[in-house]
């Protein structure tokens, strides 16, 4: 049985842990608010861009533009894996890593070569042993102080260069979609090649634009921008998910620490009482014996 002093030490150490976790929870909540705001600010741009690309691609007559499906068999796949730079955010990083591993395995079984670009330290450090030679690039400290659009453009330039050189045939982005502060889902999004557009709502607002210089040039100009904004929104969602995940994890930790303190205090008081009772019995029985 632990002595009273041991118990006291234990309680105080749990208390200080609780202080840390509740502070981290507060910080994460503030950061989550900011990340959500940022994600919302990007939305009008992404929405408008999506509309323009949609109406363009729907009305276009030439089906074989350079970002479309390739005719040859696909062989090389690029995965862009977005994770966090820091830990202590619940299952956030591990679910990304698990998802990436699963996806890599499936693709490897189908005989595809895999290449990787990592964003964020955590996934990089845990996966770099598995995919030593196939890492194309690695970015970290992206959210310091805030996610810049430059980063998305940088990644976009990289993948477009590889795609047009035929070094990769397909590109997927793995990130965590932010549903709410307590629910996030890891998912992959195909950036390249552009999927063939469904022809269901083709009548909807089919404007005939006047183009300058011409349709194909504009398509080739606009699609890279659309890819960059997709990457940017994914990174912002990922950051918001990280903070949300950290907030819930720290909330749980604080609650667990509270439970632990309650239990330990109860145990401490009981053993203190038992000790006093024991001493009293000793004194009384000693006095009786005299």
């Amino acid at each position: 049985m632990p002595s009273l002093k041991d118990l006291r030490n234990r309680i105080s150490s749990v208390k200080s842990t609780k202080k840390i976790t509740s502070a981290m929870k507060m910080v994460a909540a503030a950061k989550l608010k900011r990340a959500q705001d940022n994600a919302e600010k990007t939305r009008p741009y992404a929405k408008k861009m999506g509309e323009i690309v949609d109406s363009l691609v729907k009305n276009t007559k030439n089906q074989n533009f350079k970002f479309g499906e390739k005719k040859e068999n696909k062989k090389n796949i690029l995965l862009i894996i977005c994770s966090a730079d820091r830990g202590l955010c619940g299952g956030f990083n591990s679910s990304i890593i698990k998802f990436s591993k699963k996806l890599s395995k499936e693709n490897a079984e189908n005989g595809y070569n895999l290449n990787y670009i990592f964003v964020g330290k955590k996934a990089y450090f845990s996966l770099k042993k598995n995919c030593k030679d196939s890492i194309i690039d690695y970015f970290s400290d992206i959210a310091n102080p805030s996610i810049k659009f430059e980063l998305a453009s940088l990644i976009r330039d990289k993948i477009l260069e590889l795609f047009l050189k035929n070094s990769i045939d397909e590109c997927h982005l793995i990130y965590t979609k932010f549903n709410s502060a307590i629910s996030q889902t890891v998912q992959s999004m195909q950036l390249l090649p552009l999927k063939n557009i469904q022809e269901d709502n083709i009548e909807k607002k089919s404007q005939s634009y006047d183009f300058e210089p011409d349709e194909e040039v504009i398509l080739n100009e606009i699609i890279p921008r659309n890819i960059a904004i997709q990457i940017h929104t994914a990174l912002l969602e990922n950051l918001a998910s990280e903070q949300g995940s950290r907030m819930t994890a720290m909330d749980n930790a604080t609650r667990n620490a509270n439970d632990m303190i309650d239990n330990l205090t109860l145990f401490y008081n009981r053993s203190r009482q038992a000790l006093i009772t024991k001493e009293l019995i000793e004194i009384i029985s000693g006095a009786e014996a005299v």
Binding site: L56, Y209, D210, E212
Partner: peptide, 16 residues
């Protein structure tokens, strides 16, 4: 392809 001005009632137009 050169500077251009936009006034009211312009036709649908797309450029960069």
């Amino acid at each position: 392809e050169g500077d251009f001005g936009i006034l009211k009632n312009h036709m649908p137009f797309l450029t960069y």
